[in-house]
């Protein structure tokens, strides 16, 4: 799986949210999209999965253009999307939420089953019959990732996975992302939390006011404090 985004433009009404956003991600790689609140991180991910229809630019998966397709088609091509607001189905049980995400296995990847997911997310094990609306924020965050994995994606778009989580849950999230990387998935995650990104990502794109300002390896970012101060720290 190789994702290539080139020259993406997106609007909300008349507001120009994304201007000429380009990024790439390949299998086994964790890419972080870093930026402050309102920089365009979420819109970038939504434009890739098709929830926001890009006004210009291309999104390609393994060389096939996918922009303009409805979200369910893009999902079936192997892209999984984990929304920032979690959006679990509150009245459905954990099992029901996983069922909604279920899609056929993808060649070359070990298919996800609820049992395998409960190994990855021990917190969810034994909660199969609980209504998702009655779970804690951290548990819901785990569930929303598990639900997306049920679709057997080759690439996962994670929108601010560490937001609003207790430190101990954030540590678990780091482990989860690392093990997904080991499975050979490509991961694009948006983050404000640079410390979290530096623990999991290989490369980083820095986005500000809807434009990619900088692209570098995560090691280079760690070394460049001036860069972090300019674009990232609050």
């Amino acid at each position: 799986m190789r994702l290539e985004v080139r020259g993406l433009h997106s609007y909300y009404g008349r507001a120009h949210i994304l201007a000429d956003v380009s990024l790439e991600a390949t299998a086994g790689e964790v890419v972080a999209l870093l930026g402050r609140n309102g920089a365009g991180k979420s819109t970038t991910l939504k434009s890739i999965i098709g929830l926001v229809r890009p006004a210009g630019g291309t999104v390609e998966v393994d060389g096939t253009p996918i922009s303009g397709e409805p979200p369910h088609r893009i999902c079936r091509r192997g892209l999984g999307y984990v929304p920032e607001e979690r959006r679990v189905f509150a009245s459905l049980t954990v099992g029901g939420n996983l069922e909604v995400g279920r899609q056929p296995p993808r060649p070359g990847l070990t298919p996800w089953t609820p049992a395998r997911l409960f190994e990855l997310f021990p917190n969810l094990a034994g909660m199969g019959g609980r209504a998702a609306g009655q779970m804690s924020g951290g548990e819901q965050q785990m569930l929303t990732i598990a639900r997306t994995l049920m679709g057997n994606p080759a690439l996962v778009l994670l929108d601010e996975p560490s937001e609003g989580l207790a430190p101990v849950i954030v540590d678990q999230m780091v482990q989860v992302i690392r093990s997904l990387k080991r499975e050979g998935l490509a991961i694009v995650l948006s983050e404000q939390n640079v410390n979290f990104a530096m623990k999991v990502a290989d490369r980083a794109y820095i986005i500000e006011k809807g434009r990619i300002r900088h692209e570098c390896t995560i090691d280079a970012l760690m070394a460049d404090e001036a860069m972090r101060r300019t674009y990232l720290t609050v």
């Binding site: 409805p70 369910h72 999902c75 929304p83 459905l92 029901g96 069922e99 995400g101």
Partner: peptide, 24 residues
Amino acid sequence: TRWGTLVRAATEDREMVGALGVNQ
């Protein structure tokens, strides 16, 4: 049934159901 589960999920948030690969 799976269909019933999808319908209940879509009643809550049909856009999300679409993003999970279900043809609305």
